[in-house]
Write a protein that binds this DNA or RNA. Structure first.
Lengths: 410, 410
DNA sequence: ATAACTTATTAAATTATTTTATTAATGAAT
DNA sequence: ATTCATTAATAAAATAATTTAATAAGTTAT
């Protein structure tokens, strides 16, 4: 009896040929996952395999239900080829993006199409057991209300800020009060396999796979929110570092100030250039009696949210725009530093603050010109995230797909 | 007639099987290059190929003169296996490491063994035509005096500081006064294929392949000299960035000072934390009448070299040690920043300043603890370069070998 | 010494893959 | 409408690789 793909990738002692076939199938799936659909000829060229070989791999994958024949497609003349691609409904993935004051949830099919999603579901991320249980509750509710039967959901990806050990499923910044890894704990509450990921990294991956990235291979994604996170893509792969703590851009020491950062250190970039700092600066100005749209809306300074400031800026509030430009300049100096180190092809501005577009983009651009070597920064494009609020959810789903298909390191 | 390996890697339209065989041979060579010698069984396990297949690949490579049978070796019992490895004298590589005040030259065989070398050959790197011609002259002299016939030298690797476009052979910081790439110009003077590389990157690669690196895959190498350069190894591959300008660590903007850096910007790390800065600080102290070993040696402040200060420190000169600790603290803060961004497994201190060992290592370590997240910096080892002055030469040779065998991206 | 065991090498058989040839499908030109 | 040019898919043949088996070579234990 022949094994299915899933049996094959989990089998202990594969014989030489079987092992190679599994790898070839992974490559085929990976090509579909990254590029969408493809003809047999295209796959043959890409993977350096003959047409009959590709045909047999594809047929196996069709029998396993992972791949579908999507029918004929136009050609440059001559007989039309069949195109094949991932079978959209062979499985679904749930992505949960946990933010400071809300949660985004989304469900994608096998072809990374967002089937159903909830944006900005109210949730206050607090580091205690109740908050964790509330999170599980929200997930369970979403699953029970979603149009897809639970057993078709193959995995759940959860994004949290801070230090995450992706491989082991531990979170060190939130919910670290059990001996078991957090992923296992949520798994036992929900009944579906759970993978944790750092929020910025998941957003970077989402943006990389279906956002603003075209051919660029060395890409930095900045998550500008209350904190400043970064996802690093090198040679089209997410970069983790030794334990998955890479990209702690918000905590690089660049200022000589006395502000104690959330991380416990002084002088972190976040202390003056992130959403926290923006809110603090804004509050100070409010207390000094500055006039702004915020006062008209009767928001008490102690309840001021980053979102309020962003909304004010969208409505041309002068103070909001001024202060955003101020942190933009500091973020830009930080990006200049990254450009000197990475010589990246593309830097993406994401996170809630990136929705202010030109207000934050222009000061960043001028700071980059001021502080980085021109020969180097000429190489680097600067773009604003295309997926916006959805980047995290989509990235989470795609990472689960990769993990389950074992496509990580192709 | 069957083709040799070199004919095969350069052939235009390889048929499927031939193409795969070339790739397999590259993998075999790459394994030998990285790991040294190997038995057929080891290679089979590593590359997932059968014994007869490996045997035939090895036999082809032996026929091409690239691989040698090195005879029997001990086993855990049973018949002793033959080990195979790169044929040491099938070709030689010349590495030239151009420093500010001297040149290091070395010749390695195919097995990365240094056959002959000259350290600290006097040469003043100046950005003019005469300096370039002098460089070519020195290379030609070395070749004519070296024990290996010129035609056996398959390629030359030259390390220069500053921006290098490795792929195209352009140097932008030095000798950029012709339209043709610098590599072509030197090639025409010497008559052997020339590859340029950024000095810090070549040193990093040397250290990575035959220095202090064991299993670590994400490694940062710092070249602490007059300037501060960095070579980045990610997943055991040199990281270049879009055009090969990555690693400009010396020019990240971190200070609020008015010192104009060599690069034209203000506030670069180099302006206060590199050899240039150390020399300036030392001169200042000398002019203030400080007593130090340097004054005893009758070195005029205007002729003071970084080397003099390093020598003084080796001889326990208090001022030298004090000032080295001062820049060490600043370098350490920079490294803390890198650790937050990269979460590397290993940071290597190289370059001339690293020879001061503890004098620079201790302030760096304490700054790292002070300025980086402890969860992250716990992952990172800090080591001093093992190859020292030879890192650049060995790295240059190894990179030429990779380039010629097309092993770059295996 | 010899048996038992481990490992390498070689050879033969089997299986897999690629090549080549053939047939099918399609659009454009005659 | 039929033929031609082009490309795709399939089938058959040829080649290549792996697996299995057999043999040879070296170790260790009895």
């Amino acid at each position: 009896m022949t094994k299915t793909f899933f049996e094959e990738i989990n089998s202990e002692n594969p014989t030489g040929v079987a092992f190679k076939n599994v790898n070839l199938k992974k490559k085929v799936l990976s090509y579909f996952a990254n590029t969408g659909n493809a003809t047999i000829a295209e796959l043959g060229k890409e993977l350096n395999l003959s047409v009959p070989k590709i045909t047999s791999l594809i047929n196996d994958l069709i029998n396993d239900g992972l791949v579908q024949d999507h029918g004929k497609v136009d050609s440059t003349g001559g007989r039309k080829p069949n195109v094949y691609g991932l079978a959209p409904d062979s499985g679904f993935f749930l992505g949960i993006d946990v933010k400071t004051h809300h949660i985004n949830i989304g469900l994608t099919d096998f072809q990374k199409k967002l089937i159903s999603s909830v944006e900005k579901y109210p949730y206050k991320l607090t580091n205690n057991q109740e908050s964790l249980e509330e999170l599980c509750q929200i997930i369970n509710n979403f699953i029970s209300e979603c149009p897809i039967p639970k057993e078709k959901i193959l995995g759940i990806g959860i994004n949290l800020s801070g230090r995450i050990n992706y491989a082991k499923g531990y979170s060190y910044s939130f919910f670290h009060f059990h001996e078991d890894p957090l992923s296992k704990i949520i798994e036992s509450h929900v009944g579906i396999k759970v993978f944790l990921e750092n929020d910025s990294r998941a957003m970077a991956y989402g943006e990389f796979c279906s956002g603003v990235v075209n051919q660029e291979k060395d890409v930095l994604f900045l998550n500008l929110d209350y904190g400043i996170g970064m996802g690093i893509m090198i040679n089209s792969q997410l970069y983790y570092g030794k334990s998955g703590y890479s990209g702690e851009f918000g905590h690089i020491p660049v200022f000589r100030n006395e502000i104690i950062c959330k991380c416990g250190k002084k002088g972190c970039l976040e202390t003056e250039a992130a959403g926290w700092a923006l809110v603090e600066m804004f509050k100070e100005r409010l207390n000094e009696g500055a006039s702004t749209l915020i006062t008209r809306e009767n928001i008490a300074p102690e309840n001021l949210l980053l979102e309020d400031i962003i909304n004010a800026a969208h409505n041309d509030d002068v103070l909001a725009i001024e202060l955003i430009a101020k942190i933009g300049e500091k973020i830009g100096k930080g990006i200049a530093l990254l450009i000197n180190i990475f010589n990246p092809e593309l830097v993406i501005l994401g996170g809630s603050l990136s929705s202010t577009e030109e207000y934050i983009l222009l000061p960043i651009k001028s700071a980059i010109n001021k502080y980085s070597l021109s020969l180097v920064n000429n190489d680097t494009q600067l773009k604003v995230s295309k997926l916006g609020e959805q980047a995290g959810v989509i990235g989470a789903c795609l990472l689960v797909r990769n993990k389950l298909l074992a496509l990580e390191h192709i």
